[in-house]
């Protein structure tokens, strides 16, 4: 497929709408802070910001470089963000799925949040060159398969509608390619990928669902997962990570974006999401559910694999 441009002209109007709304809710003291995006130093780049004064609302923006899933700032893992009173947060559809999941897991309460949803045409896959125009090549693969361009159930959503064309589903294609291989070939593929891991745990740090205060993978009495960045421990880490996120992952692909070793981490999470959909007709992130697919059961569940 040739490289198609993607229209992001609505982002300036969306930025203005976000600013106006943030200013209003801060001025009316509906919220104590707003978590959003602002421009960073390099041309075209963006970074997260927490604002507490109505006058700072003008700093907020939305652009193709607004890649971060800000939901992570609301979890227990980010103790430095004070969570007094209601907090406003700018969310793309994928980020909202993470918040929905966190609400289901009793980590957040809806009434403590003021959700500013972004009608999203897509963001960049890599912000190494933040001023890159959004095209079918530069767009994040997660955005090509997004099913939540217009976030649902927010307190405020700017009125613009994104017009992103149908794009190639890179994750789905890659999962299908791997599924068609023999177990031996798949092992060889993952062995190479996992061997690159340096156990920096950036993927864990950025994930809204990795909020445990003590991760199983850090424990050493008993040690379930070897902690050194050697192939054996890496493989165990990736399998445990995928398992612990099964049925929870919002598909924000932040883990994959931050991985310095370019490991296609989200493939594992998406494969699990696909299996959970097939097995239990469960999809994460659309509605707040107090039981996930792996914390509930039905008597009629498939047991064809059990003798």
């Amino acid at each position: 497929m040739s490289n198609q441009p993607i229209d992001t002209s609505i982002y300036s109007a969306i930025s203005t709408a976000i600013q106006t709304e943030a200013k209003r809710i801060l001025a009316e003291e509906q919220v104590s802070a707003v978590i959003g995006y602002t421009t960073a130093r390099r041309q075209g780049s963006a970074q997260p910001i927490v604002i507490t004064a109505a006058n700072d609302a003008a700093k907020l923006i939305f652009s193709p470089a607004c890649v971060n899933n800000l939901a992570v700032y609301l979890t227990k893992a980010k103790k430095e963000i004070p969570k007094q009173g209601r907090i406003g947060i700018v969310v793309k559809g994928c980020d909202l799925k993470a918040l929905v999941g966190l609400m289901g897991e009793s980590q957040l309460r809806r009434e403590d949040l003021y959700l500013i949803g972004v009608p999203c045409a897509g963001v960049l896959g890599s912000t190494v060159q933040p001023a890159t125009a959004l095209t079918s090549d530069s767009i994040a693969p997660k955005c090509s398969e997004c099913d939540a361009r217009l976030p649902q159930g927010c307190d405020f959503v700017p009125s613009q509608t994104p017009a992103t064309p149908e794009l190639e589903h890179k994750y789905a294609a890659e999962i299908a390619r791997l599924e068609a291989l023999t177990p031996h070939e798949r092992w060889a593929y993952w062995k190479e990928q996992f061997s690159k891991c340096i156990k920096c745990y950036a993927c864990r740090q950025v994930c809204p669902f990795c909020f445990c205060e003590q991760c199983l993978c850090d424990r050493n009495k008993p040690q379930m997962v070897e902690t050194t960045p050697r192939p054996a421990g890496n493989t165990a880490w990736h399998i445990v990570r995928a398992m612990h996120l099964a049925g929870r992952c919002a598909g924000c692909a932040e883990c994959e974006r931050v991985c310095p070793m370019d490991i296609p981490l989200n493939l594992l999470n998406r494969k699990m999401a696909k299996e959970l959909k097939e097995l239990y007709a469960y999809e994460a992130g659309f509605e707040v559910q107090d039981k996930g697919p792996l914390t509930s059961y039905e008597e009629k569940d498939d047991q064809s694999f059990i003798k």
Binding site: P183, R186, A188, I239, K271, E275, L276, L294
Partner: peptide, 14 residues
């Protein structure tokens, strides 16, 4: 449920 899902993961890893 947990094992149904875990099997799928192991299978995908090879």
């Amino acid at each position: 449920r947990r094992f149904a899902v875990f099997r799928k993961l192991l299978e995908f890893v090879g």
